[in-house]
Design a binder for these strands. Structure first.
Lengths: 163, 163
DNA sequence: CTCAGATCATCTCGACTCGGACGATCTCGA
DNA sequence: TCGAGATCGTCCGAGTCGAGATGATCTGAG
C-alpha cells in the first residue's frame, strides 16, 4: 500500500519529481513542484487547505488595503478561485471581508489576529524549509538567485513598449 | 492593460502576476508562472495543447525506453493525466505507443520523426525565451541559478524524517 | 436627475485533474 | 502446472479551476 499517503479529504496532487537536469524551464518546474509539496504539507498540518491559503494570508499581512481583484493579481490566483479561498479563510475566521464605505461594490479582505498568528507560525515552517533547501548556498549566491528569479517573474519586458 | 488575450478554445489559466519580491517561494511561483505563460503560448502556436505536451516530447526525445509510469515520474505528471496527453500526441502522430514484447503489460511511448521536428522547433522558441529572460545575466550567475534550482528540485533529502 | 457604460464580487457551467477502482499480464513459490 | 500477489495501463467519479454571464454599484455626460 501507499506508505506515506496523506489522509486528505480533498484531492491534492502529490507527484514527487525526479527530473532530468537538462533545461532551465524544466528545472524551474521541478523546483517549484518540490517546494509546493513541502509547503502544502506544512499548510495542511496547521489547518490550512493549501499553500495558496498561506500565500493569500501573506499578501494580506502587509496591511495594504486591497480589493479582491487586486489581491488576486498579486498572488497569481484567478479572481474566481480567490473567492473560494477567502470563503474558507473567512469561515476559519482568519480573514474578514469588509465593505469599502466609499465604494460599496468592493470588498476589502483583511487579516484577523488569528490569521496573523497562523501566518506567523507558517512563516517559521517556511523559513526552515527554505533554509534546508538552501543549505550550503552562500549568501551571495542566494542574492543572485533572488535577483534572477525576480527578473524572470517580472517578465521579459514587463512593459511592452507600445508597439 | 492586458490586450494580448489569446483566443483559446480550451480552458487555460492566463493569470499574469505582479508579485511582491519578499519571499523566495513566492518568487519561485511567480517565475514559473511567467515561464509557463510564455511556453503555453508558444506551444499553442505550433499546434500543441500545452507546455506539458512539449515536456513529454522532451522526455521522449532522449531516446531512452521508458514505460508510461516511468515517464510520468520524469515529467512530474500524474500517470492518469499522462494518458490523455499521450492520446492527444498519438492522434497528432507525434508519438506512438509500442508494446514491450518482453512484458506485454507495459507500453513504451516513442517519439516519431514528426514529433522530433515539432520538438526541435519548440526548443528554438524556448531557447529564445530563456535568452530573453536571462538577458544581461552572466554565465557564472546562470550556473549558480541552475545549480541551486537543481538542488531544490532534488529535494532536501527526498525523505523528510517524520519528526 | 437620468441613464448608459464601466467595474466589482459572485455564480454558472464546461473542461481538467487525480485517487481509487479494474482487467490484463507477469513473477514466483509450491 | 497452478494460483496468489504485484505491476502495468486504463476507466470512472468526485473535486477543482477559470472564462463568461449576472447583479449590484459607481461614474460621467447630457
Amino acid at each position: 500500500m501507499g506508505a506515506v499517503q496523506a489522509d486528505r479529504t480533498t484531492t491534492k496532487p502529490m507527484t514527487a519529481c525526479e527530473s532530468f537536469p537538462d533545461d532551465l524551464t524544466i528545472l524551474l518546474h521541478a523546483a517549484v513542484n518540490q517546494v509546493t509539496i513541502y509547503l502544502d504539507r506544512a499548510a495542511v498540518e496547521m489547518g490550512l487547505n493549501d499553500a495558496r491559503d498561506w500565500l493569500v494570508l501573506a499578501a494580506l499581512d502587509d496591511g495594504q488595503q486591497r480589493t479582491q481583484l487586486e489581491l488576486s493579481r498579486v498572488v497569481c490566483v484567478d479572481k474566481t478561485t480567490l473567492i473560494t479561498v477567502l470563503d474558507r479563510l473567512e469561515k476559519q475566521e482568519l480573514v474578514v471581508r469588509t465593505v469599502d464605505p466609499s465604494d460599496r461594490r468592493v470588498r476589502i479582505p483583511q487579516i484577523t489576529d488569528a490569521g496573523r498568528r497562523v501566518y506567523a507560525t507558517f512563516a517559521v515552517a517556511r523559513d526552515e524549509a527554505e533554509a534546508r533547501a538552501l543549505d550550503g548556498v552562500s549568501a551571495g549566491d542566494r542574492a543572485v538567485l533572488v535577483d534572477i528569479l525576480g527578473r524572470i517573474a517580472r517578465g521579459p519586458d514587463a512593459d511592452v513598449p507600445a508597439s
